[in-house]
Design a protein around this nucleic acid. Structure first.
Lengths: 194, 194
DNA sequence: GCCATATATCTACCCATGGTAGTTTAATTT
DNA sequence: AAATTAAACTACCATGGGTAGATATATGGC
């Protein structure tokens, strides 16, 4: 299958791989590849969908085993980091592997999928607790952005033990879920550095 | 000046502009451009630095006028969004305008600068309040990621009024600053959606 | 002032890669 | 088995990053 071949080659050769090479690996020629999956951005899209599915599966498997919501969030973060590390090249390909058209879309590909999964539970939870549920969409993208950047930073620098990093991201996201500050609710209780 | 010409042309023609066009705009030829600023990724770097400086200036100007820390954070978010919207093409260029080598570095360019600014005050604040200051680096990247993704989403969809979005991001980041959950502090008080 | 040397700039090109037009082969239909 | 349709292949174009080598310009020595 074309996408499977693409994944294989990206995994081995990094996210800058050419379509020609992918076609060859798949045993076809470029026009066939183009007929099958469209242009490069379409390939990124298709692989992003596959990867998002596999990530969601991995994440949900981990989350399901967690003992409580905080452990659940921690499992989510851990599974995300772990997945990105194991599929580093694929992860980079779907987050930054397209052409230079459609940059915004490129960056948001994975986030779009995740946002669709996150928005509804966040909104429901907020509504159930008397907080503004309209934050759900923005917060979903915010969460994913935080997760993504922290992941990239860790992939690049490997400056800290993964368990520490997982705890730190978890702590950030968990706090972000806080209900005490709904939008425009006036001056909140705590202080903040400049 | 080469960088000024590059900015001008990117602003007018979008982030996919070629180096040839930039050289022409600057009144020189490609080799001169390469001698002056290096390859495309180096150009992205140089412009990212300029832009980061201008953004920091704009942000600090706004933050300085705020009445309190929460308003200060809101001003920061507002200035960031406003800047990204006004300099949309430049913003996209420095966050995703490079070649396909160095993808991680590309994505983190702006974040690196911001992280350097954020880390120290976050760490100091946390230390002063008896919380773990080591989260500072990860949180800085997390904050920037959240800000960046929310910004991209808003730039793309324009699905909500900017003031609402600013409030929502502010609320997310503000909560994230919370001190009640330091890493590995055991089961926190609040519940969370799956 | 004039030649030699060094430095910067330009012309002209290479090469990789995304993308496609047009021909050929294979399959399907009647 | 001939005709029609669909798919794949060969061969190519265009764009754009990057550079080698020629050319002009400036600097220093006499």
């Amino acid at each position: 299958m074309l996408l499977a071949a693409a994944e294989r080659l990206i995994r081995e050769n990094g996210p800058s791989i050419s379509l020609e090479a992918i076609a060859t690996e798949a045993g076809v020629t470029k026009p066939t590849l183009y007929r099958g999956v469209g242009d490069r951005d379409a390939l990124v899209n298709a692989l992003a969908e596959r990867l998002a599915d596999r990530m969601a599966e991995a994440v949900q498997g981990q989350v399901a085993e967690a003992s409580g919501p905080h452990q659940g969030l921690r499992s989510l973060v851990a599974a995300y980091l772990d997945f990105a590390a194991r599929e580093r090249h694929l992860y980079l390909f779907v987050t930054a592997g397209g052409t230079r058209d459609d940059r915004v879309q490129q960056s948001l590909l994975l986030a779009d999928g995740a946002a669709r999964q996150f928005s509804e539970p966040i909104a429901a939870y907020r509504a159930a607790h008397g907080a503004d549920p309209n934050v759900a969409t923005v917060w979903s993208y915010g969460f994913l952005g935080a997760l993504h950047f922290a992941t990239l930073w860790w992939l690049r620098d490997q400056a800290a033990d993964i368990d520490i990093v997982i705890d730190q991201i978890t702590s950030l996201l968990w706090s972000g879920m806080g209900l005490e500050n709904s939008p425009r609710s006036g001056e909140p209780p705590r202080e903040m550095p400049e």
